[in-house]
């Protein structure tokens, strides 16, 4: 359980109380992340306080540095927020399974991110943009409670201008000057209604959002459960299938997930809600 040391090479505000930490792994350990797949996660240590799991927020093609989006919510994340460029953190990973990007080739992708739930979806978007011709249409539905909680807003232009790529934004509470959608992501989804004929959907956000979005995709838009992907959050303390904390019924989110399709989720004894 010994982490690799990493240096913060970039720290920037991503949204209100959310920072992007870019880590350069030391001691030649960035090798381990070269084969990192979209959807995997890692533990980040604020030494002296502890460690917490975060979805890896960039694709390996955009490495060798590793990005993490950190919302200030608890002891470890507050500790990480207090660090600056040049400071040392610990990184343990990559861990968990990933989105089967090869299997998605030739398909349209509909990506639904809510709040900081967008972070583990960014490597999927980046991977598709890096290998654009391998995939069909890319629709990104991006939501947050308020405009200042939308993550990666400085990258929206890159996403919008990529071929066959569309970005839709929505917030619950708009501010002055907001000229995109207002309302829940489910309302946006209904309005946009992307073609689901040859599509894979990928959802990440708060559990309640995942619940309603995947339900709508399945029941109203005909997405088969096996093509309806989610990445789930769970409290974890080891990430290696030992500490027992993240079980959803007989599955462990850390080693059997965090990526599941709804067919798999449907078979679980316990719900993720």
């Amino acid at each position: 359980m010994l982490p690799t040391l990493g240096k913060l090479v970039k720290v920037r505000d991503l949204a209100d109380e959310i920072k992007l930490l870019r880590v350069e792994l030391l001691d030649g350990r960035s090798e381990a992340f070269k084969t990192c797949q979209p959807g995997q996660f890692a533990f980040v240590s604020a030494f002296g306080l502890g460690e917490a799991p975060f979805g890896i927020a960039n694709a390996a093609e955009r490495g060798p540095e590793v990005d993490f989006a950190v919302a200030r919510l608890g002891t470890v994340t507050t500790g990480l927020h207090e660090l600056g460029e040049g400071d040392i953190v610990g990184v343990r990973g990559p861990l968990g399974n990933w989105f089967p990007m090869k299997k998605f080739q030739g398909k349209d992708l509909v990506i639904l991110g809510g709040g900081i739930g967008g972070a583990p979806l960014r490597p999927v978007i980046q991977h598709v943009l890096e290998h654009r011709s391998n995939y069909g249409n890319l629709s990104i539905l991006w939501a947050a409670r308020r405009p200042d909680l939308l993550v990666f807003s400085d990258e929206y232009d890159e996403w919008r201008t990529a071929p066959n790529t569309t970005l839709f934004l929505t917030v619950d509470s708009p501010d002055e000057g907001w000229n995109h959608n207002v309302g829940l992501i489910t309302q946006l989804l209904e309005k946009v209604s992307p073609s689901m004929e040859n599509a894979i959907t990928i959802t990440c956000g708060p559990p309640i959002m995942i619940h309603f979005v995947t339900k709508m995709l399945q029941e109203k838009m005909g997405v088969p459960p096996k093509d309806n992907y989610v990445t789930l959050e769970a409290r974890m303390h080891c990430g290696m299938g030992k500490c027992g904390r993240c079980n959803l019924g007989e599955k462990l989110v850390c080693v059997d997930g965090p990526v599941f399709n709804m067919e798999e989720v449907g078979k679980l004894l316990e719900t993720f809600l």
Binding site: A71, P206, E233, R235, H237
Partner: peptide
């Protein structure tokens, strides 16, 4: 350090966002 813990605890699975399965 690591310490014994138990799934019987109320906050055992609480995540940072407040969701408490």
């Amino acid at each position: 350090i690591r310490c014994w813990d138990s799934c019987g605890g109320e906050n055992y699975r609480r995540v940072a966002g407040g969701h408490k399965p």
